[in-house]
Simulated scan of single mutants.
Amino acid sequence: MAISADAIRGYIDVLVLSLLRTNPSYAYELAQRITAISGDEYAIKQTTLYSAVKRLEASGLVNSSAGVSPSGKPRTYYSITDAGLIHFDVKVEEWRNTKSVVDRFINGTIEGGTP
C-alpha cells in the first residue's frame, strides 16, 4: 500500500536530512534512495524534493555545491550542516513522541491505563 503525500508531508525534511548524514547527494539520487528505502511505498515528487532542499538550505540545515556527474553533467550536491545534524536529532525525537501519542489512540489506551 502506498503512503500518501499527506501522511508524510511533515517529515520530508527528516527523510532528506537522514540520507545526507552519510554523504552528500544530488536531488535525483535522493529521490531514488527515498523510493528504494521505502520499499516503493513512497515516491517523492521532484517538485516536493526540490522545495525541501531549498527550504533546508535557506534554513542553514544543508549546503549546496556545484559538482559534476561521472558522465560530465553538472549537478548540485547537498550536504548536511552541523545545524542540520542537530535539527535532525530534534525532529527524530519529535517523531518518536508523535508516534507514541498516535499509537495510544490507535491501540485504544492512554497513559496509565485504558480509556
Results as ranks from 00 to 15, higher is better:
residue 44 I to V: 15
residue 40 D to H: 13
residue 43 A to I: 08
residue 43 A to K: 10
residue 44 I to L: 13
residue 46 Q to P: 04
residue 19 L to K: 00
residue 20 L to D: 00
residue 30 L to K: 00
residue 43 A to M: 10
residue 47 T to N: 11
residue 39 G to K: 03
residue 26 Y to E: 07
residue 36 A to N: 06
residue 28 Y to E: 12
residue 32 Q to T: 07
residue 36 A to K: 12
residue 39 G to T: 04
residue 44 I to K: 01
residue 39 G to M: 09
residue 38 S to M: 05
residue 27 A to S: 14
residue 34 I to M: 12
residue 48 T to S: 11
residue 48 T to E: 08
residue 21 R to D: 05
residue 48 T to L: 06
residue 21 R to Q: 14
residue 45 K to F: 04
residue 39 G to C: 06
residue 31 A to N: 00
residue 41 E to G: 04
residue 26 Y to I: 07
residue 47 T to K: 14
residue 43 A to L: 10
residue 28 Y to S: 08
residue 45 K to W: 05
residue 40 D to A: 12
residue 48 T to V: 12
residue 28 Y to W: 06
residue 28 Y to Q: 08
residue 47 T to F: 03
residue 49 L to A: 03
residue 32 Q to V: 08
residue 39 G to V: 09
residue 28 Y to V: 14
residue 36 A to T: 09
residue 49 L to N: 03
residue 25 S to F: 06
residue 25 S to C: 05
residue 47 T to Y: 07
residue 47 T to L: 05
residue 27 A to R: 06
residue 39 G to W: 13
residue 25 S to A: 15
residue 49 L to P: 01
residue 24 P to N: 07
residue 32 Q to D: 08
residue 33 R to I: 13
residue 30 L to D: 00
residue 33 R to E: 13
residue 32 Q to C: 07
residue 40 D to F: 14
residue 20 L to H: 02
residue 39 G to R: 08
residue 38 S to L: 02
residue 31 A to W: 03
residue 31 A to H: 01
residue 50 Y to T: 11
residue 22 T to R: 07
residue 25 S to K: 08
residue 35 T to D: 12
residue 40 D to S: 12
residue 30 L to P: 00
residue 27 A to I: 14
residue 21 R to T: 15
residue 36 A to M: 09
residue 23 N to F: 11
residue 22 T to W: 06
residue 38 S to P: 01
residue 31 A to G: 11
residue 22 T to S: 08
residue 47 T to E: 15
residue 41 E to K: 14
residue 28 Y to G: 04
residue 26 Y to D: 05
residue 39 G to Q: 11
residue 47 T to P: 02
residue 27 A to L: 12
residue 33 R to W: 12
residue 31 A to V: 04
residue 28 Y to T: 12
residue 47 T to I: 09
residue 37 I to M: 08
residue 31 A to K: 11
residue 25 S to E: 08
residue 38 S to D: 03
residue 31 A to T: 00
residue 32 Q to I: 04
residue 37 I to E: 09
residue 45 K to C: 01
residue 29 E to S: 11
residue 19 L to N: 01
residue 49 L to G: 03
residue 27 A to G: 04
residue 19 L to S: 01
residue 21 R to H: 11
residue 22 T to P: 00
residue 39 G to P: 04
residue 21 R to Y: 05
residue 46 Q to D: 06
residue 38 S to T: 09
residue 48 T to A: 10
residue 35 T to K: 13
residue 20 L to W: 08
residue 21 R to P: 01
residue 22 T to D: 04
residue 48 T to R: 09
